[in-house]
Nucleic acid binder design. Structure first.
Length: 260
DNA sequence: ATGGTAGGTCTCCTA
């Protein structure tokens, strides 16, 4: 199974890029985040015509929004509400094989890394606490967790570890929180298991003059698997070239191949 | 230390 996760930053604006990815990479399952699109406005027909008739979508107006699209049937469409909100940050399905897919969009957390002063950072940390508690219930299931987790956990997941220690996405409270979630669920980082060494990013800010040359990226997008699937990860990659496509998302697709 | 860009939407919020 080839699975791709991509923060698309408006699925309506970037529908041509979604179709290009589907044609070029032919994933079995594509998980999108930040669709920014209510369900009745989701471009499901064009995606269906591209060979992906099975769709689990959960969007809202203007913000957030997640979607899982597939060639194969998707069962038990479901979601959880996190931190007591009904924002669209999680969608789950089960494949015919019995593998659960969880697609997450974790809050970015704002600019100030102080939960007392910044309610958005507090929201993010509470989301992480809930994920840790929930993960403990997932470790026996064959499950894949993907999404824009808005945390770059390791030194090689950011362009400068030292310069980002006080920047939200790479603060110790976040990276330690992510480690606790992984410990609780027995989650394996499929991408780092496949590519253990060297700088690897999935996001580059729109604000850089030349994102490719400056290369001040962060690895915010992840694919994890539970212990029953950990031996079946065959390869993983980041489709960096998509960051250079016409009118791109600021995130690149992250890809994993998991054996049946 | 600061400002830089992008998308959605109703004037500024979020990333």
């Amino acid at each position: 199974m080839k699975i791709i996760t991509w923060n698309i930053n408006s699925v309506r604006l970037r529908l041509p890029l979604v179709l290009r990815l589907l044609e070029q990479e032919a994933p079995d399952v594509l998980c999108l985040q930040e669709t920014k699109c209510p369900d009745d406005a989701f471009p499901g027909e064009a995606i269906r015509e591209a060979g992906y008739p099975h769709q689990a979508i959960r969007g809202e107006k203007g913000y957030n929004g997640v979607a899982i699209i597939a060639r194969q049937p998707l069962h038990d469409h479901r979601h959880l509400n996190w931190v007591g909100r009904e924002d669209c940050r999680h969608q789950a399905v089960t494949l015919e094989s019995g593998v659960d897919i969880h697609n997450f969009y974790i809050p970015a957390g704002g600019d100030v890394p102080d939960r007392e002063a910044n309610p958005k950072f507090d929201h993010k940390l509470r989301f992480l606490d809930e994920l840790e508690a929930w993960s403990a219930s997932q470790r026996e299931a064959p499950a894949v967790l993907v999404g824009d987790l808005n945390i770059a956990p390791h030194e090689d997941d950011v362009w400068s570890h030292k310069q980002l220690l006080r920047i939200i996405s790479h603060t110790p409270v976040e990276t330690e929180g992510m480690a606790a979630i992984m410990q609780a669920g027995g989650w394996r980082d499929a991408v780092r298991d496949a590519i253990p060494h060297g700088k690897l990013y999935s996001w580059w800010s729109y604000r850089a003059r030349d994102w490719d040359t400056a290369d001040k990226g962060r690895r915010l997008d992840h694919i994890w698997v539970t212990p029953p699937l950990s031996k079946r990860v065959e390869s993983a990659s980041v489709l960096r070239q998509a960051r250079g496509w016409e009118q791109p998302s600021d995130h690149a697709p992250v890809i994993a191949i998991i054996g049946d």
